[in-house]
């Protein structure tokens, strides 16, 4: 068995199912530094994969590479068994960036933009999405005048509007108060229950415990661990992870 297959087996019987997303030999350099080095990763087609790792580990770069908005120097990303293309990304994937980029329009128009793109323009749907993230009262406000946390929630709702099969989230709750954070976690669990695959970067071990079916730990552009959540928190694959989680080690 390949190393990747062993890891998949570790998640619990998913090895037989073809992965939804896989990266092979992914490499990316910028600014004279290798940020992602020969990385292999496979994601099953269900559940929430939480990506953890210290600041600057390359989590955001990795997510961009997996989503295909950043071109790798080497290696390939396969989605549903095929090389990912524009049209498939448009139809099946969405991403909430670490720093959300909102259109210079109203809150409502940001959602409607995506709904229209997918041929699902519908006032009721827009309203429902905004209610889910607690922004229904701000419908007509300019999106960019929202607070940081509100912008993040809007970006999340906008990603849901695309009804993706695979949703990338880069620290979606980083700027959120505990209530909003809990609200978003519920939405993520709901999305996963609806069959959406989530790949989510988080620094919050508590959040990872609550959400993750598996955890991927990245360090200096390499995968130190890809384990089921239980296994990860019980006996992490690398001794450095335990120290990192307990705050004893700054990687």
């Amino acid at each position: 068995m390949t190393e990747a297959a062993v890891r998949l087996a570790d998640i619990g019987g998913c090895a037989a199912v073809a992965p939804l997303l896989s990266a092979r030999g992914l490499r990316f350099s910028a600014g004279g530094q290798t940020l992602i080095r020969d990385l292999d990763l496979h994601f099953s087609n269900h559940g929430i994969s939480v990506v953890m790792g210290p600041n600057g580990a390359g989590k955001s770069v990795l997510l961009r590479l997996l989503h295909g908005v950043l071109k790798a120097d080497a290696g390939e990303v396969h989605y549903a068994g095929r090389v990912l293309d524009e049209e498939t990304r448009r139809r099946e994937q969405a991403m909430v960036f670490q720093r959300p980029v909102l259109l210079r329009r109203s809150v409502e128009a940001n959602i409607n933009y995506v709904l229209k793109l997918h041929g699902k323009a519908d006032a009721g749907r827009c309203q429902a999405l905004l209610e889910q993230v607690g922004l229904a009262a701000k419908l007509r406000q300019p999106a960019r005048a929202l607070s940081g946390g509100e912008q993040q929630r809007l970006a999340f709702a906008r990603a849901l509007a695309a009804e993706p099969r695979l949703l990338f989230l880069d620290e979606p709750t980083a700027n959120l108060d505990p209530n909003a954070s809990a609200m978003l976690e519920d939405l993520m669990l709901g999305a996963a229950a609806d069959g959406i695959k989530l790949i989510c970067v988080s620094h919050d071990a508590g959040q990872a415990r609550r959400l993750a079916t598996e955890v991927v730990f990245i360090h200096r552009g390499e995968v130190l661990a890809q384990q089921s959540a239980d296994a990860f928190f019980d006996r992490p694959a690398d001794p450095r992870i335990e120290d990192y989680l307990s705050g004893r080690l700054v990687l």
Binding site: V69, R90, R91
Partner: peptide, 8 residues
């Protein structure tokens, strides 16, 4: 990146 993500 947003445009790429949306596949426009």
């Amino acid at each position: 990146e947003l445009f790429r993500s949306m596949g426009l």
